[in-house]
Simulated scan of single mutants.
Amino acid sequence: MSHAVLLLAHGTPDVLGEMAEYLSKVTGGRPMPEEVIEELKHRYAQIGLKETPGSEPPPLTKWTLAQGRALEAALDGQRVYIAMRNWSPYIADVVEQMRADGVTSIRAICLAPQNSRTSVGLYRRALIAAATGMEVDFVAGWAENPFLIQAFAEKLLPVWSSANADLGRKAPVLFTAHSVPCRTIMTGEASIAGARPGTPMQDTPDPYPVEAKRTAALVAEQLAPAGLAETDWYFAFQSQGVSGGPWIGPTVEDTLKALKQEGHLGVVLQPVGFVCDHVEVLYDIDIAFKQSAAELGLKLWRAESLNDSPTLTRALAEIVRAASTTESAEAAPAKVG
């Protein structure tokens, strides 16, 4: 039996002209208003996406490929593949390549650490549909992995220390994760988006908000020896959809206003729902939130993204090895879920 690792990411267009097609993949074919398409083209242009291919891929693709190479090296040559849900290389195409390469067993890790049945669940359904006849071990969430927590803490500590020195006092830390529509985390609603007709509804709330806040709490604990107290950090959901409908909060914008009203002079922001740079980091935080903060009279610092963090590689390698150990010890068929 030939085993291989598959890292799964969201995907991103390579050029601005692909935006409408890309968004149709994200929404499952639901048409988007032209003004939404143009707004997102503007945002992607602000972070460097061009009308023609550049000398290197967009940040999400660049860093995901780098993470795959680093993991493959850490696994002493075990093959690591990369696939995207909403753009090339598509999950179905990569699975076919794996099949052609003789792979019969896939250990899949979604590069979104916190599990959500409506986002991570779509990755799993796409993979299972493509991997007929292959064994699949799908890692649905790894929000509390110790090396993931350490990786975030390593990026947060230096910028928090620098902000404290700049302000002459402790700066609050604002952790964030990507918002999702309210309906998708409610009891019973989480299995609707992207599910086939007749799919049973879940009878428990989606775990995503709890897992996102748990990651933040664990990262904050890592900085406790440096002086970060429980009252020094906050959590908000960012990047609410531009197409309408209620999304979970609190929003970053509202939280920044509250911090200003409490008398704070600045804030350090760390997105713990993402493992690399992409538009929600490079535009939403570095451009939009910094502007919102400046208008309020707040300084805003951001912890660097994990990107090619060796500690992130250790987290991913540990997940792969732990699954291999369990598989060997139990001599059981690979699981899905």
Rank of each mutant, 00 (worst) to 15 (best):
N145Y: 03
D286K: 02
D166C: 07
A220S: 14
G297N: 13
R85G: 12
L23H: 01
A294I: 07
P207H: 02
R107D: 11
I106W: 07
V242F: 13
I192W: 00
P333R: 05
Q222M: 05
G188K: 01
T176D: 04
S328K: 12
G77C: 09
N164R: 13
L296F: 04
E189M: 14
G249V: 08
S292H: 13
P225G: 12
T313W: 10
G263K: 09
L316N: 10
G68K: 08
M98R: 11
K213G: 12
I37K: 08
P58Q: 06
V159N: 10
I109E: 04
S105Q: 14
V252E: 06
E189G: 15
T251K: 07
V5E: 00
S309D: 05
A323S: 15
A130M: 09
K50S: 13
A74H: 10
A294E: 15
G244K: 11
K62D: 08
V26E: 10
A74Q: 14
M19E: 14
R85Y: 12
A195T: 12
E189K: 07
A332I: 06
V320E: 04
T251I: 07
Y90N: 08
P209E: 02
F175T: 09
P197D: 01
V26N: 11
L16G: 03
L265C: 14
K257W: 06
Q270T: 08
S105T: 09
R321A: 08
L306Q: 08
V275T: 15
K62H: 15
E21Y: 05
V242T: 15
V268M: 03
G168Q: 09
P205K: 01
S328H: 10
V159C: 08
A153G: 04
A224D: 07
I37L: 09
Q261S: 15
S105V: 07
